[in-house]
């Protein structure tokens, strides 16, 4: 099967992580008061970054695996 689950996981985490990071940056200037409840930590920004990193890793390994299996099929 030519769908490696790491690819959609990577894409989902990249989209959500990017969204959260961006939202964290914008709210940092527009409405920093929303972070009072999260103990004054801009959790959107930092957790968004972590999700971006995880998503990038997943996508990288997923794509590499797909490329390898396609190459293996092509060689047959």
């Amino acid at each position: 099967m030519n769908l490696d689950i790491r690819v959609p996981i990577g894409l989902l985490f990249l989209s959500l992580g990017g969204l959260l990071t961006g939202y964290g940056v914008v709210t940092h200037f527009t409405s920093p008061e929303i972070y009072a409840q999260s103990l004054d930590v801009n959790v959107n920004f930092w957790w968004g970054l972590a999700m971006l990193a995880f998503g990038a890793g997943m996508l990288h390994y997923g794509r590499r695996a797909v490329a390898r299996s396609t190459a293996a099929v092509g060689a047959e």
Binding site: L16, L19, L20, T27, Q37, S38, V43, N44, W47
Partner: peptide
């Protein structure tokens, strides 16, 4: 609801 601001709450 107690800890998460808009954004992370959605997650």
């Amino acid at each position: 609801l107690h800890y998460f601001p808009a954004g992370l709450l959605g997650l």
